[in-house]
Design a protein around this nucleic acid. Structure first.
Lengths: 154, 154
DNA sequence: TAGGTGCTGCGAACGGTTCGCGATAGCGTC
DNA sequence: GACGCTATCGCGAACCGTTCGCAGCACCTA
């Protein structure tokens, strides 16, 4: 018996699962790679490559930035990791799950939502333009209810 | 009597209109600024700052890249110009009109559409999340009908 | 436990954009 | 018209996020 998750489930639940996937592909679970995964599990949200390399401000092991980028690339190929582009600024990485994003241009807030909750939106787009939209790599951008509200500008 | 436009109308119809707006704001219509405008009118679509500086591959006057950026910034403040971010790659600039964009991640095609045609999509987003979405700065990204179609992968 | 080879960590380079600065030239004023 | 104020230019250097090249290291398999 399991408790219904509040968030979409991870594609890989633990570092061990991932280690197996890496080795299946002829790769190795090196120290640097483990750091990237540890930080992603610890952060459980969107983090920049730089934040990963810095070990979440020194709270965790640090590692080399270019290695972090290479590892993130590899982990994306394996379907373990995904990245999003929010506005300007660096790409943000997270463990893979069925999540898409909305971002507010007013308060910079980012709302992750289960992909299924965007099905109506996707249908509207498909009906009108034939496009099959994805908001996992580039989010929906606009003003959130608070920032767009009639009585609360700024 | 006018012919119905196929595309959303420009906010400013000519360089002279724009010149007036620039001077109203205490600015000057310099040679470099005129080049930017000439290129934007000539291109009548999305162009990078670099393409503007290069005078559309030498077909028009060239100018300095950093001046182009400064001018584009100024023209955006005046509401004459707007830019879009498509995927990775440089920002793309265009004369301001009521247009939003869809981009196909498969074939890289970019479809400009009248903003009004996205009203249903915007409503679906507002209903579900309270967000007031804008697709003018960051487009809707996905697969176009051709690339998503059942019989034509790649 | 040894070997090969995938990966590291460093530095340098990249593309896109911004900044600092002395020189230039628009434009309102006389 | 010429004058002068100052917005803007054009150049170079710096910036940020990301990628690349390379010599040496260490994970994993046999």
């Amino acid at each position: 018996m399991t408790v219904a998750p509040r968030r979409a489930a991870l594609k890989f639940e633990s570092v061990d699962d991932i280690a197996a996937a890496i080795r299946d592909g002829g790769g190795r679970l090196t120290a640097a790679r483990r750091i990237v995964l540890d930080v992603l599990f610890a952060a459980d949200g969107l983090v920049s490559a730089e934040a990963i390399a810095g070990g979440l401000d020194g709270r965790m092991m640090t590692s080399d930035l270019s290695s972090v980028y290479r590892n993130l690339e590899r982990l994306e190929e394996l379907g373990v990791v995904r990245h999003v582009h929010l506005d300007h600024g660096p790409g943000l990485y997270t463990l893979e799950r069925d999540t898409e994003y909305l971002m507010c241009e007013g308060c910079r807030r980012v709302d992750p939502v289960d992909a299924a909750r965007l099905d109506d939106v996707r249908s509207a787009i498909r009906d009108a333009f034939g496009y099959h939209a994805r908001f996992s790599h580039f989010p929906i951008v606009g003003l959130c209810a608070d920032c767009a509200g009639p009585r609360k500008p700024g």
